Amino acid sequence: MSETTDLFPIEDGAMADLRSRLTEQAGESGLLDVAHRTIDSPVGRLLLATTERGLVRVAFEREGFDEVLASLATRISPRVLEAPRRLDAVAAELEEYFAGTRHSFDLPLDHSLSSGFRQRVQRHLPDIGYGHTRSYAEVAELVGNPKAVRAVGTACATNPLPVVVPCHRVLRSDGSLGGYIGGPEAKTTLLQLEHAA
């Protein structure tokens, strides 16, 4: 027996329009808690996810998009849908950033995936200006806990909003890269893009 799509083929444009209308209806009905989309960038494909509060997750492809979406469904809500339009403003600001015309982001952020000291560090990271870097030790001092250098490293490594919350601007005391959720190549690319000292 043939599938319905064989009997009544749906053009790609019509399918995209139907998906878009269903997503919009889900949002209007309160059935959409986490909207997501992917974009291409100089550091590879990125997954973007947002809640009503703001951008909640930026993920590198190497993290596994399916795993990231499953984690969002577990930690925030199972009502996760692809809804590209909801992330148009985020995509536009990232495009400007990668083009070198934007040096800071003006996006509402949802920090609910972090808590305690990690969140405190992550909220401080945007204070490190475009084109500048700080060491893990300097960040520990700036957030009021100079002995928490390793904890700062952990906060950077678990940052759910890389690029937008610029953990790539934090280096080891000797100036070497340190770890990065997107990998050393992505961290190098971002620092070169910003001409970071």
Rank of each mutant, 00 (worst) to 15 (best):
D110P: 09
P160M: 01
D40A: 13
P9W: 01
H168E: 11
A186G: 12
D40F: 05
A49Y: 11
P184H: 12
L109H: 08
L47E: 09
V56I: 15
E93M: 04
S176Q: 02
G182M: 07
I128D: 10
D106A: 15
E194K: 10
Q119G: 04
P160R: 00
R62K: 14
S71L: 09
P166A: 04
M15E: 13
D17A: 14
D66V: 11
V163K: 04
S77L: 11
T189H: 12
D88F: 05
L161I: 13
G178S: 12
L32P: 06
A148S: 11
V170M: 00
H36R: 02
R150D: 08
L109I: 15
S2W: 04
S29Q: 14
L142I: 03
F60I: 03
P166F: 06
T189S: 12
I181F: 00
L81Y: 13
R37F: 07
P166E: 08
E96Q: 13
V68W: 11
L81S: 09
R85Q: 12
L31F: 12
G100S: 06
G182T: 07
A92Y: 07
V143K: 06
E52F: 03
E95Y: 01
G144F: 10
V90T: 15
G100Q: 10
V152N: 09
R57G: 00
D6V: 02
L177K: 02
D127L: 10
L48I: 08
K187S: 07
A186F: 06
G144L: 04
Y180Q: 07
E24R: 15
V34C: 08
A91D: 08
M15W: 09
L18V: 10
V164P: 03
H132L: 11
H195S: 15
P166Q: 02
L81M: 13
A140W: 05
P160K: 08
D33R: 09
P78N: 06
L191P: 10
K187Y: 04
L113G: 04
F117Q: 09
S29M: 10
T5R: 06
T154I: 11
L161P: 03
L125Y: 09
H36P: 03
E61D: 14
G64V: 10
A35I: 08
H168S: 00
S20V: 00
P184D: 10
V143S: 05
V34Q: 00
Q122T: 08
F65W: 00
D12T: 02
E28F: 01
G129V: 07
G100N: 13
L48E: 11
P78M: 02
L191Y: 15
Y136H: 14
V68E: 14
V152S: 01
S173C: 00
S176R: 15
